[in-house]
């Protein structure tokens, strides 16, 4: 069981590192959301699974509580993370940020693009 825990911890750390690097290296907001959301969700999933396995191995009241709470944290992350990133992507598009070197932008064509009277916060690039 210890081998399993070490493997989960290593996978989790590796993919979280990849998420942080993707956040630095990608060229615009949307690609950054891609990298950061996918990689940190996957990495955190394995980190938290390692803790859940550790709790089950320990057993008893304390270990069981740890496993159950870790599992609940996992479920919440898996449900809330993609929804939050979806909201951020839509907000970025509506606040007027163009996708970097996009070959096609159907969302702007459909009239859901930035509004004419925009009161949102703007920073010039």
């Amino acid at each position: 069981m210890n081998g399993l825990i070490y493997a989960f911890l290593a996978i989790g750390a590796a993919f979280n590192a990849l998420g942080a690097v993707a956040l630095i290296r990608f060229p615009d907001v949307y690609t950054r959301i891609h990298g950061a959301t996918k990689c940190t969700t996957f990495g955190s999933l394995f980190s938290i699974l390692a803790v859940a396995v550790y709790g089950i191995v320990q057993g008893g009241g304390a270990g069981g509580t740890m496993a159950v709470r870790a599992f609940l944290a996992l479920v919440f992350l898996l449900l809330t993370n993609p929804t939050g990133s979806h909201a951020l992507a839509r907000a970025a598009h509506r606040s007027g940020i163009k996708p970097f070197r996009a070959v096609v932008d159907r969302l702007e064509e459909a009239g859901h693009g930035p509004r004419a009277t925009d009161h949102g916060p703007r920073e010039t690039r």
Binding site: L18, F26, H93, A102, V104, R106
Partner: peptide, 23 residues
């Protein structure tokens, strides 16, 4: 999900992207 993460890793290393918003 595992495939998606390896895909992101490959794109982080090579920097090869061709993005767009489709419907």
């Amino acid at each position: 999900m595992a495939k998606a993460n390896l895909d992101v890793a490959w794109r982080v290393i090579t920097g090869r992207i061709n993005p767009g918003i489709v419907r």
